[in-house]
Write a protein that binds this DNA or RNA. Sequence first.
DNA 1: GTTTTTGCAAACCATTTGCAGGGTC
DNA 2: GACCCTGCAAATGGTTTGCAAAAAC
Lengths: 145, 145
Amino acid sequence: MVDASVLSDAFAEAGYRLTAQRRALAALIARRDGHFTAEDLLVESRRRRLGVGRATIFRSLDVLAELGLIERLDLPSGGHAFVACRAAHHHHLVCSSCGRTTDIAATGLAAILRDVGTRTGYRIDAHRLEVFGLCPACQARPRGG
Amino acid sequence: MVDASVLSDAFAEAGYRLTAQRRALAALIARRDGHFTAEDLLVESRRRRLGVGRATIFRSLDVLAELGLIERLDLPSGGHAFVACRAAHHHHLVCSSCGRTTDIAATGLAAILRDVGTRTGYRIDAHRLEVFGLCPACQARPRGG
DNA sequence: GTTTTTGCAAACCATTTGCAGGGTC
DNA sequence: GACCCTGCAAATGGTTTGCAAAAAC
């Protein structure tokens, strides 16, 4: 969960124009707690008559991902989703039941990767860690969807 | 790189019928070193007149993934690929230039995840770590593709 | 002989693109 | 006023599906 203005400001700061659509999307994304898909945003945009089209949603998500404000997730199901993020680099802990997303630090991962690089001779430049589990609230809940 | 018979045997052991197409696919996958896409297999199947159709390739990849003999990779580009695997659980180190794939142990990751679970209260049930970098051979090579 | 598997081609679904009009700086 | 951005709807590209024929058990 981030502040909508952080998102819209980012467009401006990166030299993109601040349009009504981008503001609307920033607000839409800001109010999301867990992950969301492009389709989710499109549906909500239509329901609330925000007048943001499909193409614009995909294009904006691209930009935000480029700027590091959201991150694309590859769900175990094969689908794609996005999550808002704030920290420079972190990883995502995704609730497999409700989709709530939490940033995690994964202290120690850097050391692991360094070790992997040494052992294999690879020059490591990127990595991705996604963790899935049941959040406390969903554990408390009886079970079921 | 795995043995083709390991793959074809797996079909039989899991109660699937051992067809010529599945044998052919097992061989195709076994000779792959790095990751490969469904399309790669389709192209090679056609070139070598193996008579394995698109649908069968996707269906077989599903089965093999289900059985844990191959794993689906989500490349940074957004595309999907598969890699053959043998260890019970491991992670993949993928060369961003040639696609060669190496299994890595990531010793210590379990501890990190346990820690994450403790700190967040999540019941962690799955995770995925993918590491991308330049393999020794590609580092040695001038550069270019 | 029964049940699973296959191929084909059409269906699908998410994502991308071209282009003309509209909005931002 | 110039250039960026948008919507639309069509194109795209990878993946799935329905069904009748073929193969495995």
